[in-house]
Design a protein around this nucleic acid. Sequence first.
DNA 1: CAGAATCCACCAGGATACTG
DNA 2: CAGTATCCTGGTGGATTCTG
Lengths: 138, 138
Amino acid sequence: MYERKIPLTIDCGLHLTREILSGKWKPALLNAISMNIKRPSEILRILPDATRRVLNVQLKELEEHGIIEKKTYPQLPPKVEYSLTDIGWSLMPVINAMNIWGDENRDFLEKVIKQDPKIREVSKSPCEFIQLNAAEGK
Amino acid sequence: MYERKIPLTIDCGLHLTREILSGKWKPALLNAISMNIKRPSEILRILPDATRRVLNVQLKELEEHGIIEKKTYPQLPPKVEYSLTDIGWSLMPVINAMNIWGDENRDFLEKVIKQDPKIREVSKSPCEFIQLNAAEGK
DNA sequence: CAGAATCCACCAGGATACTG
DNA sequence: CAGTATCCTGGTGGATTCTG
């Protein structure tokens, strides 16, 4: 009988994870929610390049996939808060790893990505767009 | 003056990393290459759901992004080998984290993904499709 | 403030066939 | 064995508008 010398799953887990994270804003959404930026309006402020609709769509997918939970407060004006589920939290190390790797190699990555013919503007808004404290603390 | 209490980059690194990994097969490709499955024909065998063309496209992107290197042996029949660059290797912890997370939560993930209306067949080929050793050792 | 409904453009990625 | 050229479609995600 054969003894497998290579682990069974060469990309199975990988595909599942990709499936969950597939969506332009999903990693960023999870990152935001994990940092307690959990109201739609706050999220929109932090991700100015995303539209309300797309955010709603992707948040709903994350919710349906059991990664986040949505709490709606039946009041006026409406209030909604998202939070990570246990599974969602367990995903954060992955998100963080992505974040860190991207930061560590930013110079290199921005260069190679920009030289890419398909001019993917790395994002109109610079990285320093966040003044959460300024905006909220006020 | 304001003192930032939240790190500058809420998703900048995240976006860069996403950009690099965006492509249905890229994580799997990196995973394969890191495991020394570096010839196109081998890769095709391991990822039977991908087509030659798409694989070529994504491999080329990874190459242009400086994540992998391609070595062509000018002989007949042609021989090509891919390998990870230093940057590519530094990405592996991220890939591995994705892989592990997906594996650890496979049951849950398969369930929620399958219940998804957009019937994404998680993949026609089961996870056990690999008999590398059997095929090669022969 | 939150979000659903439309409409639509674009591109990723699959199928097929051909060349070296 | 490796790679390219065409063609095509379906899904992602953007813009806009309208409700509670």
